[in-house]
Amino acid sequence: MSNAITRDEVAKVARLARLILSDAELDLFTEQLGQVLEHAADMNSLDLADVVATAHPFGLTNVVREDVVIASLDRDAVLAMAPDARDHRFAVPRILGEAP
């Protein structure tokens, strides 16, 4: 059994990711994620303090478009793919809390 990640941490991550895990899945994921994270320990043994992080392979900068309006999608077509729509809007069950 790996201890790179605990079952409680897996449960917390599931909540953050909006996934519901059964007890069995929690056990399995704790084990499997632990293995991947343990494999990643090879990185953590390195001293990379002076290495710059690369988020992107090529350093493009200032990619912009001109401020020009282009046609939007047809509303009916877009709402037709929605699981639920009313009054030309996307309908959702009640929202429990305010946005951050």
Binding site: R65, D67, V68, V69, I70, S72, L73, R75, V78, L79, D87, H88, R89, F90
Partner: peptide, 22 residues
């Protein structure tokens, strides 16, 4: 701006709902 931050949809207050979407 005339259009939105990351797309060409019109940036306009008061349009009919869901008409400025892409």
């Amino acid at each position: 701006t005339k259009s939105k931050l990351f797309c060409g949809c019109e940036n306009h207050f008061g349009s009919e709902p869901n008409t400025n979407i892409c």
